[in-house]
Design a protein around this nucleic acid. Sequence first.
DNA 1: TAAGCTCGTCACGGAAGTGTCACACAAATT
DNA 2: AATTTGTGTGACACTTCCGTGACGAGCTTA
Lengths: 232, 232
Amino acid sequence: MTKAGKSVLIVDDEAPIREMIAVALEMAGYECLEAANAQEAHAQIIDRKPDLILLDWMLPGTSGVEFARRLKREDRTAELPIIMLTAKGEEDNKVQGLEAGADDYITKPFSPRELVARLKAVLRRSTPQGIEEPIEVSGLLLDPVCHRVTSNDKPIDIGPTEYRLLQFFMTHQERAYSRAQLLDQVWGGNVYVEERTVDVHIRRLRKALGESHEHLIQTVRGTGYRFSTKVS
Amino acid sequence: MTKAGKSVLIVDDEAPIREMIAVALEMAGYECLEAANAQEAHAQIIDRKPDLILLDWMLPGTSGVEFARRLKREDRTAELPIIMLTAKGEEDNKVQGLEAGADDYITKPFSPRELVARLKAVLRRSTPQGIEEPIEVSGLLLDPVCHRVTSNDKPIDIGPTEYRLLQFFMTHQERAYSRAQLLDQVWGGNVYVEERTVDVHIRRLRKALGESHEHLIQTVRGTGYRFSTKVS
DNA sequence: TAAGCTCGTCACGGAAGTGTCACACAAATT
DNA sequence: AATTTGTGTGACACTTCCGTGACGAGCTTA
């Protein structure tokens, strides 16, 4: 399925601190990635898809807060949990940090034990089967646990790609996506396929859904597709 | 909105390779600039302000990595996305490249398709579309995220051009625009179409909006059109 | 190895969208 | 009132975009 240990991206401009944290986390069974600034961090996020980010308040260039805000605004990274690190226990920072979208907040110095504890808590909170809940839209049901789709209790047989496509749509309803965005989100960012391939899978998905539900997937001419219960 | 094609700076010391890449990118609709070394590249960046840089790993004089690092450190160019090119798929390079601030990484040889795909992905990522809030004017709602227009909650069906036109008007209310200005802003600067074409699209848009909202688009005789809630 | 699936690509045809024209109509100018 | 100028409107050819069936490559299963 996926890898066993969760991976954590440590973003801090001071290498020794990164190292220290990395050692502590690795002992606790986490895989560690490191980045010294916002650019590196972004590259790592895209490339390695960590499960959580430890983000230092102070960063050269783009500040930690600003970076957090940016991540939360980006659709693909909005779900990524962030823990902020700050040197002094200034309450102002805490508020700003949380407002920027951080999920938790630790002041340096902190014990490894505290760090791991918070980390676990945040992961438990944000990883859980938020995506594992069945989704139902007007008789169309997608159950991630059983990995099964039913239309009015009648089982729908679709391939893995169509399944992921449908799952993405059902968790991101009403919003229009370009073919490129769908390739990014459903196929995964670093594969190359023709954009028109999306059309074909849309077609297969529609066909599988049948007349009762195919209208849920709407074409947005000149743009892409949209999953919506509202008529166009 | 802005210019249609993005411009890409190709930095490689071998002219044939630059040429090959340039051809591939131009076919995909990108404007290409070229540079054989770090000095030339820097001059081009200042002068032409490309939207993305394709940077060869090996360069005479200042190496690609070093150059990338320098760019990221410079304030004015820090946001410029960089894709690294390298001859061999050495993982070491990859890490170094990403740490130096590259946004993506391609190993030669690569297919033009792959190149274009990655390029698109990086551009999409690094051009965080401005926060797209829905705009509402007296019952007329345009939602950029859903790519949808509703008049008193009733969906309005319009083509891409009318959509862009309406979006422009709603973000630039109360001001009169000439046909030439509208062609510039909505059609994009470097296309030639008859000015009277604007009239036709205005007409189509008014028709689609229906009696309830068509009066929002007002004719300014001798000048052009205006989107306004105030009656004339 | 063959059979069965899924996937990505292509080519064709049809549908929707686009730009231009001609003419009708309205407003300003004489 | 007649003329000139500017805009509304319907129709048409043309282009672009999307739906669709078919096909071969790769992978898994038997």
